Amino acid sequence: MKIQNRFAWPLAASVALVSASATAQDMPQDTPATDSRDAMESTGGFDRDRHFSGLYLQGFGGIGLLGNNRGTFEFDTNRDGTYSENVNTALGTNAFSPGFANCGATGATRDAGCVTKKEGAEYGARIGFDTRAGNVVFGGLIEGSRSESVYRSSAFSTTPANYRIDRSLDYAVSARARLGFTPGGGALFYTTGGVSYAKIDHDFSTTNTANSFTERNDGKMLWGWQAGGGTEVMLTNNLSLGVEYLYSRYKDDKYAVEVGQGTAPATNPFLLNGGGTNMRVQDKVFDTHSVRAVVGLRF
Rank of each mutant, 00 (worst) to 15 (best):
K2F: 10
I3N: 10
F7P: 01
W9G: 04
S14L: 10
S14N: 12
A20P: 04
S21C: 13
S21Y: 12
M27P: 06
P32Y: 05
D38H: 05
G44T: 02
S53F: 05
L57P: 05
F60N: 01
I63N: 07
G71D: 07
T72Y: 00
E74K: 05
F75T: 12
T77C: 13
G81E: 07
T89G: 04
G92Y: 01
T93Q: 08
A95L: 08
F100G: 03
C103Y: 05
T106L: 11
A112Q: 15
A112F: 01
C114D: 12
T116I: 03
G120K: 06
G120T: 02
E122L: 11
Y123K: 00
A125S: 10
R152G: 07
F156V: 10
R164V: 12
L179N: 03
G184S: 12
Y190P: 11
G194H: 06
V195Q: 09
A210S: 13
T214N: 14
R216S: 15
D218L: 02
W223Q: 04
W225V: 06
A227N: 06
T231N: 02
T231R: 01
N237C: 03
S240P: 07
L241W: 10
Y245K: 04
Y245L: 09
R249I: 00
Q261L: 13
P265S: 00
A266V: 06
L272Y: 11
N273D: 15
N278R: 11
N278E: 14
V285S: 07
D287S: 11
A293R: 01
V295K: 02
F299I: 00
